[in-house]
Design a protein around this nucleic acid. Structure first.
Length: 282
DNA sequence: ATTATATCCTGATCGC
DNA sequence: TGCGATCAGGATATAA
């Protein structure tokens, strides 16, 4: 399930592979993608590939410089993958292939089994982030985190999933961040002390950085631009480890449900009220 | 205003 | 062995 580190991994891999290549054709096979005019991308050059929030963003420039700006924004959602291929003969399009970008010297395949992903051509990137701070691109500090948390009565775990507050965390990294910050997922978001807010800020950057270093988490279906898996799943402290011993205190990890999403946590290390007793360790 | 729930979608897994 | 029910979750629309 691509979250910020998975999307960052894909963008970093794609960038050197496709930057400066020209788009010969953008083929849409799944009508659910509903692009108005995919041919607007034809002839343009991909001059940059980067991540914004959980989306992959490509800057498509007109080589003549006379056409207006155009961006290709891909959101992988649950099962989306962007795969680089140089196979001379591409197979006939069939699910899960939803779209294909034919470039000079290769193809970018958009595969997406569950078809939740989106692919859009945009004249501007302004509307991509609905107000959420990107932990690496935006003004993310203990102070700005505290400002956003203020007044929220929602439990902190579902709060972390809100992309209009913080862009990039999904279910896995939200659970992991709360574990490393030693905070109960049930705590009201607005109830965190300055020290707890600072711990959470630090933990968010830590788990996301670790995820990027590992090339993402492959829990179910994530694959990078080469069709390979990430390795962060080996370092998960709580996610998917219900019943297994906490790596810090050996208490069994618990699983509960918040807003229909699984939440994994250590009931001892992340107790509702207790002050943290042990030092943080990997 | 904030927060909760239903929805989208398909493959993997579960229980009988 | 097979088959229907359930689960998984990012984001949006809708409800409360």
């Amino acid at each position: 399930m691509p979250e910020l580190p998975e999307v960052e991994t894909v963008a970093r891999q794609l960038a050197p592979l496709i930057e400066s290549r020209r788009i010969l054709r953008l083929e849409i096979f799944d009508p659910k993608l509903a692009l108005d005019a995919p041919e607007a991308a034809h002839g343009r050059v991909i001059c940059s590939v980067r991540r914004l929030g959980k989306q992959v963003l490509m800057d498509l420039q007109d080589p003549c410089g006379c056409k207006p700006p155009l961006w290709l924004a891909v959101h992988l959602r649950m099962t989306g993958r962007l795969i680089w291929s140089t196979e001379a003969r591409q197979p006939a399009p069939a699910p899960p292939l939803r779209a294909r970008l034919r470039l000079t010297g290769g193809w970018v395949l958009f595969k997406d089994v569950r078809r939740f992903g989106t692919l859009r051509l945009l004249a501007s990137t302004e509307l991509l982030e609905p107000g959420g701070i990107d932990p690496f691109c935006g003004d993310f500090s203990p102070r700005t985190l505290a400002e956003r948390l203020a007044g929220a009565r929602q439990p902190i775990k579902p709060w972390l999933l809100r992309q209009d507050r913080l862009a990039g965390l999904g279910n896995i990294y939200a659970c992991e961040a709360l574990y490393h910050a030693r905070l109960s997922p049930h705590r009201p978001a607005g109830s965190l002390s300055p020290d707890e807010t600072a711990r959470l800020h630090r933990a968010i950057l830590k788990v996301l950085s670790m995820g990027i270093e590992c090339g993402g988490t492959t829990f179910a279906t994530f694959e990078n631009a080469h069709g390979e898996n990430g390795t962060f799943q080996r370092k998960l402290a709580v996610y998917g480890r219900a019943g297994q011993p906490c790596r810090r205190c050996r208490a069994p990890i618990e699983r509960t449900t918040q807003q229909g999403r699984g939440t994994f946590y250590c009931p001892n290390c992340q107790s509702e009220s207790a002050l943290p007793r042990q030092s943080e360790s990997a």
